[in-house]
Amino acid sequence: MDMIFNPLVGGLLIGITTVIYLLSLGKVIGISGILSQLLFSKERFLPFLFIAGLIIGGSAYGVFTEQTVAFPETRSPLILIISGLLVGYGTRLGSGCTSGHGVCGISRLSPRSVVATLVFMTTAIITVSILN
């Protein structure tokens, strides 16, 4: 039940959010882009509000929702730092991440986003299969 219900509700919420954002503000939701605006643009207020909301909402994990899978054992700082550097640099060079390319980009059938999503899914799957 939870294996279908929770992801379905989560996915619908994510989809509805991208639609509200698009139709009201005219923009695409891309977390890596919004983070980079918060860090480097002159207009930081709106990106700050979005990221603050994201962290508050995302921390509701286990509060409103039932946790079906345990968190992994804490990984070493070195692993997390290598991962963070690659994600930070890669998403900026590639102009997007799971949200901007994977959800919003595929929704609007952007050829760039379809290619980007295929590429990052492939390298992520290869990385996991090598590390396991």
Binding site: R75, I79, G90, G96, F120, M121, T122
Partner: peptide
């Protein structure tokens, strides 16, 4: 960029 992102995503 997307390839590097995927590697980073797959690590953590």
């Amino acid at each position: 960029g997307s390839a590097l992102f995927g590697i980073g995503w797959g690590i953590s």
